[in-house]
Design a protein around this nucleic acid. Structure first.
Length: 108
DNA sequence: ATTCTGACGTGGG
DNA sequence: CCCCACGCCAGAA
């Protein structure tokens, strides 16, 4: 039974991201065993675009930059969601990124 | 089957 | 920190 597309695996991890926390595509990819294919993770999020259960706004690139904000409905929606969780975002970059970083492989 | 793209990551300068 | 080039591999046309 399985047949789970690559997306569902990503959603499974992203859904577990705690409130007010963030993670990177690479961390998720590595957790799934697809280290190096971080692009697939981001792409999976693109497919998840309609799933509200997947807080894609909590997933950023390794620099803590909101690279995917362009793919959201609005241009500033992603940042608003993050700030709504107590995260400070300046110039599309998350402040204290290392502090807010949540590693699925390390804590899960 | 081939070709292209992509919300990234790493290494070198 | 920035910039440049390469690799990665799943899915759509």
């Amino acid at each position: 039974m399985k047949q789970e597309g690559f997306f569902e695996q990503v959603y499974h991890v992203v859904r577990q991201i705690p409130f007010g926390r963030v993670t990177s595509y690479g961390a998720i990819a590595k957790y799934l065993g697809a280290a190096g294919s971080a692009r697939m993770v981001g792409w999976a999020m693109n497919a998840s675009g309609g799933k509200e259960d997947v807080p894609a706004h909590r997933v950023v690139n390794r620099k803590g930059l909101l690279t995917g904000k362009h793919h959201f409905k609005g241009t500033n929606l992603m940042q608003q969601l993050l700030e709504s969780e107590g995260i400070t975002v300046i110039e599309n970059k998350i402040q204290n990124f290392e502090q807010l970083f949540w590693d699925p492989g390390a804590e899960l």
